[in-house]
């Protein structure tokens, strides 16, 4: 059963850089959009709040596969040029998970006690200063565990890019290996699944470190947390 183990592993690993690139790029874009949209949902301007809501509900309300196909197949017909598959993939991963992340940011900011807002008002800090210097540093630590879950979801979603010809891990397995090694699918898939498991463990380990840092920034002793398995709250 493990005759071709090495060959399978090296072939699948050839897809790993693209999986990592898609996930990494998606995470960067997710963080960016989460903060922009999350803070926009807390804006005092009704229009800003409305626009942020439309983005969040629109991207959470549709299917990620549809979003991917729409950006990759439909948009080029509208605008006249096609995105490189990897970039189209990163764009969709970021836009989709950014919509979920926006709710995380909004929730964490709202969870900072009202007394902290009032303390900042009493010192006459302006709205932007209150958010930047007092509220966000305390909100980060609340965001880390849900963002950990979100990033693992994003890693899992990166396998969708195999459907638009990005030769990441899933694509390598299903397009390159499975058709050529009939009867050995079990080995191929077990290796694939373990690779994804390792990548999600890497995310969790990094986020644990981030959480420790965030707890220090927030000025509170790091709390023991249960294994991060919280629901995403779709």
């Amino acid at each position: 059963m493990f005759d071709n183990f090495e060959l399978f592993l090296t072939t699948l690993l050839r897809g790993a850089p693209l999986t990592v690139a898609a996930t990494g790029g998606g995470i960067v874009l997710t963080i960016l959009l989460s903060f922009v949209a999350g803070l926009a949902m807390l804006s005092r301007s009704r229009w800003v709040r409305f626009l942020a809501r439309v983005y969040v509900e629109g991207w959470r309300g549709t299917s990620e596969v549809v979003q991917l196909f729409w950006i990759y197949f439909a948009v080029p017909l509208l605008v006249g040029f096609q995105l490189v598959p990897l970039w189209a993939g990163i764009l969709v991963l970021g836009l989709n998970h950014g919509a979920y992340g926006a709710e995380i940011v909004r929730g964490a900011v709202n969870a900072v006690p009202r007394a902290q807002h009032e303390g900042a008002i009493a010192l006459n800090l302006g709205p932007a200063q209150r958010i930047r210097k007092v509220i966000l540093p305390q909100a980060f630590v609340e965001m880390v565990p849900p963002f950990n879950n979100l990033f693992i979801q994003l890693l899992k979603s990166s396998s969708l890019l195999s459907l638009i010809t990005v030769t990441e891990i899933t694509n390598q397995g299903v397009q390159v290996l499975v058709p050529n090694y009939t009867g050995q699918a079990l080995t191929i898939f077990l290796i694939m699944l373990v690779l994804y498991l390792i990548l999600s463990l890497v995310i969790t380990v990094v986020m644990r470190l981030v959480e420790r840092w965030a707890a220090r920034v927030a000025g509170r002793p790091a709390t023991a947390r249960a294994r991060v398995t919280g629901e995403l709250g779709i």
């Binding site: 007394a115 902290q116 009032e118 303390g119 900042a120 008002i121 009493a122 010192l123 006459n124 210097k133 007092v134 540093p137 305390q138 920034v217 927030a218 000025g219 509170r220």
Partner: peptide
Amino acid sequence: VRRRIGMVFQQFNLFPNM
């Protein structure tokens, strides 16, 4: 106008991140 006023709260409201 608030510049002229300071306040001390029952629960201190110090900023834990500073």
